[in-house]
Design a protein around this nucleic acid. Structure first.
Lengths: 167, 167
DNA sequence: AGTATAAAGGTCAAAGATGGTCAAAAGGTT
DNA sequence: AACCTTTTGACCATCTTTGACCTTTATACT
């Protein structure tokens, strides 16, 4: 799937990989011009693929001489996993965000690739989606909050990672 | 008989046979166009001929750049994971039974000890607890079926273990 | 210094592009 | 006729792309 968003994502990741400091500045308008798209497309890519939970920090400045700075964050086991647990508490997590977090933990070697695959399977809509159909009176609807459940599953995963006896 | 469904089934199996990784991506709309049929016909074929119990795993993504991915599962008559997948299908699994199954998979070395710990955390009542948002009229009560959810999670785990691309 | 203007970047909602679901219609079998 | 499988279509959910409008910042001009 070579969507525009994916191409831009790859481009940014390449630049990031090539940079010594794990950080990279660029003008939003320049990026938009390279890919011949609307500038707001860049924001879409940053929101969906470079969020904090996915391990990136995005800063920017407007006005003349404005720019976007993307920084790759490294997970610090002692502080960040705890922070992520807090974050996951009661959080709504979409499938996309959940997979992003898992990919990050795999990249940082907190999880093996196998573990990542197992966990991503568990977080999928296909797995979570319910089969039960309950008869309710007219006008009432049954809503299952998959995103909340996903948040709980992720939290459990993080908590296990933090266990002292986890090797 | 050469029903449309059979032709589509054959086509997919050919593509799968030709693929090195045992996996194959295609656009639902593209497939529907090749066979000049309603897109939902593709889903019918996937449901009736590429289910988990038939040895396949189907994933998909909607929206721009969407696709369907079909992955073959391992067929190894020496292990009984397939049997367990059948078992887990639509099954109610208590926390105790679920943990027992995971322990067994760890003992038989289908899962590492780490993986077992991660998965047991996910199956706990604590994790699965309230995930429903419901508006019910007075006098109606709803009991949440954790055991069914656990069955789904276990099934997903088993299917991942069987994926040909699982390393 | 104060203000106007230009040069960025940000937001949000609508439109476009896919795939999913479900039930009804159509075709075969028994 | 009754039942099962296949095919279709209307409607839904999710991801992407675009564009109109908004905010912030630097600089040039009073």
């Amino acid at each position: 799937m070579a969507t525009l968003a994916n191409q831009i994502e790859n481009y940014i990741k390449e630049q990031l990989a090539a940079s010594k400091a794990g950080s990279f500045d660029i003008k939003r308008s320049a990026l938009a011009e390279i890919f011949m798209c609307a500038p707001s497309q860049i924001n879409y890519v940053l929101e969906t693929r470079f969020s904090t939970s996915q391990g990136y920090c995005v800063e920017s400045k407007r006005g003349g001489g404005g720019y976007i700075r993307i920084t790759r964050l490294l997970v610090n086991p002692n502080n960040d996993l705890h922070y992520l647990v807090e974050e996951a508490e009661g959080k709504h997590v979409s499938q996309q965000i959940g997979e992003g977090l898992i990919d990050r933990l795999v990249e940082e070697e907190f999880l093996t690739k196998r573990e990542g695959m197992l966990l991503k399977g568990l977080l999928s809509h296909e797995t979570l989606r319910p089969t039960l159909h309950i008869q309710l009176p007219q006008g009432y609807e049954l809503l299952i909050d998959y995103d909340l459940l996903r948040g709980r599953l992720l939290k459990s995963m993080l908590v296990t990672l933090l266990r002292e006896d986890f090797e």
